[in-house]
Simulated assay, not measured.
Amino acid sequence: MSKLSEKEIVKHLEKLPEWDYEDDAIHTEYEFNNFKDCFSAMSRIAFECEALNHHPDWSNSYNVLNISLTTHDAGGITLKDIKLALVIEGIVEEEEEE
Rank of each mutant, 00 (worst) to 15 (best):
L16I: 08
E18P: 02
S43R: 06
K7R: 04
G76W: 05
V87K: 15
T28W: 01
D57T: 07
E93L: 08
L69I: 10
P56A: 05
G75L: 06
D23P: 00
D24P: 00
H54R: 08
E97S: 13
V92C: 01
Y62Q: 04
E95P: 00
G90H: 09
L4W: 09
I45Q: 05
V92H: 06
A85F: 10
C49L: 11
N66Y: 04
T28S: 13
H27S: 08
C38K: 02
W58M: 10
Y30D: 02
H72D: 09
I82P: 11
S43F: 00
D37F: 02
E8N: 01
K11Q: 13
S61C: 10
K83D: 15
H55F: 03
S59A: 12
S43P: 00
P56K: 06
F32E: 03
Y21I: 02
A25C: 11
E98G: 12
Y62L: 05
F47Y: 09
K36M: 12
E93S: 11
S2N: 15
F47T: 11
E93F: 08
S5E: 04
V92Y: 05
A46M: 04
S40G: 10
F39G: 00
I88M: 09
E29G: 06
V10F: 07
E89L: 01
M42C: 01
M1E: 12
W19I: 13
S59G: 12
E96V: 09
E93K: 14
E6W: 01
F32S: 01
I82M: 09
I88A: 05
A41Q: 03
S43Q: 04
D37L: 10
S61G: 03
N63K: 15
E6A: 05
E89R: 11
E14V: 04
D20S: 15
E97C: 06
A85L: 07
F39I: 08
L86A: 09
E18K: 15
T71W: 08
A41K: 01
L65M: 10
F35K: 02
V92D: 07
H55S: 01
I82E: 04
K15Q: 12
Y21F: 15
E50V: 03
L69M: 11
I9E: 01
D81A: 07
L79W: 04
I26E: 08
L86F: 00
K7Q: 10
L84D: 11
I77D: 03
I26D: 06
A46G: 13
S59L: 12
K11R: 09
G76Y: 04
